[in-house]
């Protein structure tokens, strides 16, 4: 029996090609823009821009690995951070540090995620439709029942300060100063944690197993219901956390800001090699896809394209990526 080498296995994966495309794109943009992409201030801007989308994508990835489809995470994030900042503002918390805000937001996120989890774990339903329902419901909660308002200039100082957390200052050749956001470290940390969960814990393998074949997972002895419940709770908590990061970075809490966010994150995760049928996808691939999109959208100006075309190129990359990977899958099944 022929044994496959590490190299053979690697080159079969979607992640590998996304990575190649990323490198290629970076080189092309660097050349076309006359070396502007690797200006220090440009690099830190791109890294900073990756944080929120990257965190959302990691949560989305875990759901997709399990064969689910989560439309509700932006609504969970919006409700959690709006509620948390409103409470902090009214109680006078978070003036010196951001702990309380994050704690509240994560707890709210987890609770909302649990609601998804209870429904999805106990009933054999299409997760896309369930989360579409909860998304609408959560939006109704935040803007209807709680009537949460925009918080901009009055945002607690602790949150504002956290968003400005700087690791070091860089200076471009033109003398422009920018600071490297410390929040990028959070993205790296979460990416490592998610990667460890997916690969090194039985819970993570359970997600792949359920995504691959739910009936078999049940027969193999996994508690599928419990696993799904925990998954959606974790993803909810992560959404709450990510939402709060966004509040700190944007220095404002706007309940409506997350509307339709899922429509850009989910395609990116698919581009990164996750399958809508479940059982496929890695942290590395997802991060490559997010980097690719962030690099391209943030360097439009550098290569002389109007920034209004950002969304178009964003969509185009994803369309091409998904088309190519589908064609490849078609060829493999032949």
């Amino acid at each position: 029996m022929q044994k496959s080498t590490v190299w053979q296995r690697m080159t079969k994966r979607t992640e590998f090609y996304i990575f190649l495309v990323l490198i290629l794109m970076v080189i092309v943009i660097q050349l076309v823009s006359g070396g502007q992409l690797f200006e220090p201030n440009q690099v830190v801007t791109i890294l900073r821009a990756m944080v929120v989308d990257g965190l959302f994508a990691l949560g989305c990835l875990m759901v997709m690995v399990s064969g689910g489809f989560d439309m509700s995470f932006p609504a969970i994030a919006a409700l959690s951070y709006s509620l948390a900042t409103t409470i902090c503002l009214n109680a006078g918390w978070c003036t010196t540090n951001a702990w309380m805000g994050f704690l509240l937001s994560v707890v709210f996120g987890a609770i909302l995620g649990m609601l998804n989890g209870v429904i999805i774990a106990n009933f054999a339903l299409n997760t896309m439709l369930v989360t579409l329902g909860t998304q609408t419901f959560f939006t109704g909660l935040s803007m209807g029942l709680f009537e949460l308002k925009e918080i901009t200039s009055t945002l607690p100082k602790g949150l504002r300060a956290f968003g400005e957390w700087s690791l070091f200052e860089v200076e471009s050749s033109a003398g422009l100063k920018s600071s490297m956001s410390g929040l990028f470290l959070i993205l790296i940390a979460v990416a490592i944690i998610v990667s460890l969960i997916l690969n090194k814990t039985m819970f993570g393998r359970a997600l792949y197993a359920i995504g691959g074949n739910e009936v078999s997972a049940e027969r193999a002895g996994y508690n599928v219901k419990k696993t799904k419940f925990i998954l959606y709770t974790i993803v909810g908590a992560l959404a709450g956390f990510t939402g709060m990061i966004r509040v700190c970075m944007a220095r404002q809490s706007i309940p409506k800001a997350m509307v339709n966010k899922e429509m850009t994150i989910i395609p990116a995760v698919i581009l990164g090699g996750a399958s809508i049928y479940g059982g496929e996808g890695t942290v590395f691939g997802t991060m490559c896809a997010i980097s690719l999109i962030t690099v391209v959208t943030n360097s439009m100006l550098l290569v002389g394209i109007d920034t209004y075309w950002q969304k178009f190129f964003n969509g185009l990359i994803i369309l091409i990526g998904i088309t190519i990977s589908s064609l490849q899958a078609k060829r493999n099944t032949r």
Partner: peptide, 28 residues
């Protein structure tokens, strides 16, 4: 009849996963 296998996992994982679950392991 469907063999209860996981098409997306490797042969190794397919072979070992059941006994790992039965042994109630938490880590891989």
């Amino acid at each position: 009849q469907d063999l209860s296998i996981f098409p997306n996992l490797t042969v190794m994982e397919n072979l070992a996963i059941n006994s790992e679950i039965t042994a109630n392991r938490k880590l891989v």
